[in-house]
Amino acid sequence: MGLLEGEKVHLWTYPRFISAKSGKIYIDGLPLDKIQAASLRAHIGIVNQDSFLFHASVRDNIAFGKPDASQEEIEVAAKIAHAHLFISQLVDGYATPVGDRGVQLSGGQRQRICIARAILSNPSILLLDEATSALDTESERLVQNALDHLMHNRTTLVIAHRLSTIQRADLIVVLDQGRIVAQGTHESLLAEDGLYSRLIEMQQFTPY
């Protein structure tokens, strides 16, 4: 379980890609800087707005974090990520090259392959950084369904402007100009009639 202490701890300090300038993060009671980076990253899955894919096959991209995965394991992860159907329709299926940074695929397809990759690695901690912000409505629906499966029974930290991504969160922290202005559940924040409820209204948010 992750605990953030302090006002300005960047999300990407969790896998120690950058160092925190202030504040501290604890995981299972241990300070982040006391955990070996390789061990830490083995327990963290990341899906962000820039769904990065390697110039390799679909299979290799999904299996990046678990290169010894069987074809069956890869296909199970793809099915959970709502990616198996479109992958099966590609010219060479899972052996199809995706091109540089996944240029051969749509944004929603790239995102679902990244989610399948995270599912296959089965991380203890999941970081979602604007994971649906660049998608059209239909792609967002499919990706959100995949994310719901991925977030189940694991610690998940989500940064999002599209509030459909965070409605079911145990704790929502509302930031304004880099400061915490409110925190609570979706229902309690709506009842406060503050910034969160105004953002919901602006987005014409419809609950699941």
Rank of each mutant, 00 (worst) to 15 (best):
L4I: 06
G6A: 11
W12I: 06
Y14C: 12
P15Y: 00
F17A: 07
I18L: 03
I18T: 13
A20D: 06
S22V: 13
I25M: 05
I25T: 01
D28E: 08
G29L: 02
G29M: 05
L30I: 01
P31F: 00
D33Q: 06
K34H: 00
A37R: 15
H43N: 15
N48L: 08
S51R: 09
L53I: 09
L53Y: 06
F54S: 10
F54D: 06
H55W: 03
H55V: 00
A56F: 02
R59E: 02
N61G: 09
I62V: 15
A69P: 13
S70P: 05
E73C: 07
I74E: 04
E75K: 12
A78V: 09
A83I: 06
F86K: 03
L90N: 06
D92N: 10
Y94M: 10
A95K: 09
R101M: 08
V103G: 00
V103P: 01
Q104S: 10
Q104N: 11
L105A: 08
S106E: 09
G108S: 10
Q109Y: 05
R112S: 07
C114K: 08
C114D: 02
R117L: 12
R117F: 12
A118R: 04
I119E: 06
L120S: 11
S124G: 14
I125G: 06
I125H: 12
L127K: 10
E130C: 05
A131E: 02
T132W: 02
T132A: 02
S133E: 08
L135K: 02
E140P: 07
A146Q: 09
H149I: 05
L150N: 04
I159E: 09
A160I: 09
H161V: 08
R162E: 02
L163S: 06
S164R: 09
D170R: 12
I172Y: 03
V173G: 13
R179V: 15
I180A: 13
V181Y: 05
A182V: 12
Q183G: 04
Q183M: 13
H186S: 04
S188E: 12
A191S: 11
G194V: 04
L195V: 14
L195G: 03
Q204N: 13
T206D: 07
Y208T: 07
Y208W: 10
Y208D: 14
